[in-house]
Every structure is written in C-alpha cells, then in structure tokens.
Amino acid sequence: MLPMTTMYFSASVKKLTLLCIILVGMITGGIVSVLASDPPDDTKQTSVAVRIPLVEGVLPWDDPMSAVWNEAKVSEFNLAPQVHWQDRVQEVTVMSVKVRGLHDGEKVAVLLEYKDPSNDQADAAALEFMVGDKKAHFAHGQEMLQVEGGPVNIWYWKNEAGKGIDMSAKGFKTLRTQDQQDVSAKGIWQDGTWRVVFSRSLQTNDEHDAQIDLGEWSSIAFAFWDGKLEGDVPKEKGSQKSVSSWFPMRAEPPPDNSVYGYVALGLALAVAFELVFVRKLKKGLSA
C-alpha cells in the first residue's frame, strides 16, 4: 500500500512539487542570506569618504561657526608632509583635518577644521577636485606616463586675502587663477583651531571647474600651509605644505522613498503567493 501522502499528492503532484520546491528554496535562500551576510569591515576607517548630505533650510555657506554644521557628518583625514616632488618638506604643522560638507541642492559648502597653534597672515588651505571624466593625478594633475590625465580644480583660501580663489592646474608650474571666480571662502581662527568654509554652486558654467553631480562619487584632496614666519619667510609655502592624496566624496541625493514602495510590493506578492499556495495545498490534500 502506498503511503498516505502519495494518495494526497497524486491529484496535482506536479504543481505541488514545483510549488513546494520554490517555497523551500526561497525560505532557505532567505534565511541563508540573512545568516551569511558579511560582517562590516573593521579594518577600514569609517571616515574614508566625505559625505555631503542635503540640508533643509539655510546653508551656512559663509559661516564656519554655524550650529548647522552639527548636522553634517564628520570625516577625519590624515595628512602628510609634501614629499612627492621638489621642493619637499619633512615636517609640517597640520597633520590631520576634520571635514564636513552640506548642500542645499544648489550650493555646496565644505568646512575644514584643523589645528594650527598660531593665526598667521600666510596660513592657507585648499581643496582639490578632478575636472571632467579623465582621472587627474593628485599632485596638481601632473602628467602620468601610461594614462592620459585630466586637469584639476583647486579652491584656495589664504588668511590675508580673506576670500576663496578658484584655480586650475594640469601639471607642475601650470597653476593659475581662473578668469571666472566661483568660489567663496571664509576662515575663523579660535583657540589654536582654524575653521575654514569653502562654498560654490554645485554646478557652474565654467569648463575649468569640477562639477558636483548629486549622488555621484568623485574625488577630493586637501592641502594646508602654516604661514608662521620664520625670519621673514613663512614656515610653509608653495610646494612645502601638508597634503593628502584623493579620497572619495559625494553630495548625497534627496532621499529616495521608492525603495519602500518596492518593499511593499514584495510583501504583497509574497502574501498573495502564500494564499494561493496554501489554497492549492488544501485542495491537493483533500482531493
């Protein structure tokens, strides 16, 4: 005599088998994917990127001390003395920088916060970006031997100038101030710490500028000069500065809620599948 289940199954055995296999597979797959998720990589610094969220309300584009900056994510980057090309420097004052960014959909503001024991006229800071689709070397877009590189856009602030300067370079000794100035900057020194805010429209109509597309990852690099006078000359000037190489940067897009719609759809489909499935099972078993 055949087992009971065979009698139950004989009615619509093909359909039921298929359905059972699908369901068992889906449940097992789901459970495994939950259990097998990779743990977060602890070796990576959490601050490896500059994330620039969208801020509601007024962007503190010219106020480095604004409380609105507390809404921004802080990332800290180590810096190095510029030892990549001549003239090198072996010791520098600024060894790390805290970076925050905010945008309002039109304009972006980036706040640099770093320690410098003295407030000097020649103190300076700069941000660097790649321009266009070609990769540019972090050292002023210098020539690469096997890769065709692009230019860089540099946003420069110097204490004595008290404003931002929009610059371009493609290779050493090509640094120049752009004809069209789009960058603002303001620095405030307090208790041995500079807070310098740079700002600009996310998009400009200048082909020499880096354009910041919402949601797209791009690259950013930093440079700092301690202008403390040693004799008659600043301690750090020109290529003698603190630098970083490229780090990832992204101006975050407005929140996308469509994902919740898809989740609801997925839930509804799963429930509908269950209802049909259980009905078929009951039919099959009672047949």
Binding site: Y262, V263, G266
Partner: peptide
C-alpha cells in the same frame, strides 16, 4: 516570516 524575508531582501537589494 516568509513575506518579511522577501521584504527584507527587496530592501537590502534596492536600498541606496
């Protein structure tokens, strides 16, 4: 649990 798993999977695959 089954629909919740489906929802969770959808979220993790689509969440930016």
């Amino acid at each position: 649990v089954f629909p919740l798993l489906v929802g969770w999977q959808t979220y993790t695959k689509l969440a930016p």
